[in-house]
Design a protein around this nucleic acid. Structure first.
Length: 282
DNA sequence: AAGAGATCCTGTTGGC
DNA sequence: TGCCAACAGGATCTCT
């Protein structure tokens, strides 16, 4: 599923393919895909004629700068891929597949297509002069980026102090740290040698610093590889990522640990399946 | 007030 | 082999 490294990979693809593109026409095939404005027709009307500028990423959110024909700011285009959202770049006309939700065309007939099997993905148009968080409420609740200086062992200690919820659940909480999902939560806990069930408040500073470093390393490795390979994630060209080749624990319940051979365990935590090695993690 | 659980959605997987 | 339940999961909403 798209987590921070996959979203960053998509951001780079979008910036490469669509920066400077002038939107000629927009078609919404699934109403639910447009979170704001309320009427999808207003979304289409708003984007039409605008030029796409730079693409930014905040957590798992994508945001494009938009400008009008006169070069003045014309708001922002927000996107969240949720679980199965994908962008495809089509240089020429091709009929839409059944899960096509939104289609955006350039004047030259090129198409940026949003395909989303499970239809959880969403788009927003933020009018000029309005803060992104006003329209995209989720942005308001986002914690620091994992690479930010603010995200430190001390920060984690402070935020998690007294908390009894499992560290795995805490990592999935976007208000603690932005961009982590089930895959990288499990993988970073393995890399840090921490059991996912460990009560967050019980982790001393040293172990939290180790976790922060493990998370940053796992995310950077995956970004460098173009996103994860062990999910149905695809970049704009439709190719799969190559996160260091393979997962250490994610979706490997019942299989031997790649480091020590112990059988990987699997259990639901906070409604999400968690995977860990009982001898490498404690 | 923190935190758990249900919900949305649909293709894939596993068990009988 | 065929069918159906369980599963996958990001964020939001509801409930305790």
């Amino acid at each position: 599923m798209p987590e921070l490294p996959e979203v960053e990979t998509v951001r780079r693809g979008l910036e490469h393919q669509t920066s400077g593109l002038v939107i000629d026409r927009v078609e919404v095939l699934r109403t639910r895909a447009i979170a704001s404005p309320e009427d999808p027709a207003d979304f289409c009307r708003a984007l039409r004629g605008l030029r796409v500028g730079r693409w930014h990423r905040r957590g798992k959110y994508l945001l494009a700068d938009l400008e009008g024909p006169d070069g003045c700011p014309a708001g922002r285009w927000g996107v969240h891929l949720r679980m199965t959202g994908q962008f495809l770049w089509l240089a020429e006309d091709r009929p839409p597949c059944p899960h096509t939700r939104v289609r955006v065309w350039s004047g030259a007939g090129e198409e940026l297509r949003f395909v989303d099997t499970r239809s959880f993905g969403q788009m927003w148009w933020v009018p000029p002069g309005v803060a992104d968080e006003e329209v995209m409420g989720g942005l308001r609740r986002l914690g620091p980026e994992p690479f930010a200086a603010e995200f430190s062992g001390a920060y984690l200690r402070r935020r998690l102090k007294g908390s009894r919820r499992p560290i795995k659940n805490a990592l999935l909480d976007q208000s603690l740290v932005a961009g982590v999902g089930n895959i990288y939560a499990d993988e970073s806990l393995f890399a840090a040698g921490i059991l996912p069930q460990t009560p967050s408040g019980r982790l001393p500073l040293g172990r939290l610093e180790r976790l922060r470093l493990a998370l940053v390393e796992v995310l950077e490795t995956s970004i460098g590889a173009g996103g994860t390979t062990f999910s149905d994630f695809r970049d704009l060209q439709g190719t799969n990522g190559n996160y260091g080749g393979q997962a250490w624990v994610y979706r490997r319940g019942g299989s031997p640990c790649r480091r020590c051979g112990t059988v990987i365990q699997r259990e639901k935590l906070g409604g999400r399946s968690s995977h860990w090695c009982p001898s490498c993690q404690s």
